[in-house]
Measured scan of single mutants.
Amino acid sequence: NITNLCPFDEVFNATRFASVYAWNRKRISNCVADYSVLYNLAPFFTFKCYGVSPTKLNDLCFTNVYADSFVIRGDEVRQIAPGQTGNIADYNYKLPDDFTGCVIAWNSNKLDSKVSGNYNYLYRLFRKSNLKPFERDISTEIYQAGNKPCNGVAGFNCYFPLRSYSFRPTYGVGHQPYRVVVLSFELLHAPATVCGPKKST
């Protein structure tokens, strides 16, 4: 009989979030998941669920729940959905087409922007091929755009693959930082360890 609440607040209220290319994953298990708490945590810009209804979450049980978190800019949030393409979905964080879970995003301009520009958040701009779903690539190998090998040196047709967002508070919403948490629900042929409040007794 599990009584402890799932530590969603640790994920959502973390002081620092990860850069999207090096997104963070927390496995959540053996706890009571009260998803209604999430609705009250922040004024969400996005709370979209796929393959599951957000209002039914509190009635369900899962084997595992994974919470992935990272920062992107406002106009990239739409890429965090099944079947999307674009720089983020292709080279940084890719959801599977049959994704079961929820994408939660909110504006973090007050936390993640600086007047002089916050350069701490990076994204991958160049990659030889698209990522597979939930693949994480943290390599910093020089990207070869031409025929000549780069031998690890940046220059003509040889690019450092990561680029930094420079978040400034005066930017338009599309270029402001957004914190994203992706909850993916895993149903294996194994005992369910993460249940809503109704199912945990």
Results as ranks from 00 to 15, higher is better:
L95F: 03
G174F: 05
W23K: 01
S184L: 08
V103A: 02
D9G: 13
F126V: 06
Q84L: 09
L187M: 14
C102A: 04
D9Y: 11
G51E: 05
N151K: 14
P7K: 14
A22K: 11
N120F: 11
F134L: 08
T193C: 10
L111Q: 14
Y159N: 01
Q79D: 04
G146I: 02
I88V: 09
T15W: 06
V65D: 01
C61T: 07
F126N: 04
I138W: 06
C49T: 03
G146A: 06
L183W: 05
L41Q: 14
I2Q: 14
N118W: 04
F62I: 12
V52S: 06
D75G: 14
L38Q: 05
I104P: 00
A33Q: 08
L188C: 15
N24H: 13
E186S: 12
G51R: 13
V32S: 10
D97K: 13
N118T: 06
V181I: 09
N40D: 12
F62N: 07
N58M: 10
I142Q: 05
P197T: 15
S19F: 02
E10D: 12
G172H: 00
C158G: 01
D98Q: 10
V32Y: 12
G74W: 03
N147E: 07
N58E: 14
S108P: 00
E186D: 14
S108C: 06
S129A: 12
Q144L: 05
Y50M: 04
A154E: 14
E135Y: 05
V37N: 12
R127T: 02
Q144Y: 03
P96W: 03
K198F: 14
Q84V: 11
V173D: 11
T193E: 13
C31N: 06
D34C: 09
S139L: 06
V77A: 05
Y178L: 07
S113M: 01
V11K: 05
V173H: 12
K199W: 13
Q79C: 04
N30H: 12
N30C: 08
R127A: 06
Q84W: 07
S166V: 04
D90W: 08
R136I: 06
G172V: 00
S108I: 02
P82A: 03
R124C: 00
S184R: 08
D90A: 10
C61V: 10
P82L: 03
K48N: 11
T46Q: 14
F47W: 15
N120Y: 12
L188T: 15
E135M: 07
C158E: 00
S166H: 08
Q84F: 06
K94A: 07
L60D: 08
F12R: 05
N87T: 15
Y35Q: 09
V153A: 14
N13I: 05
Y50F: 11
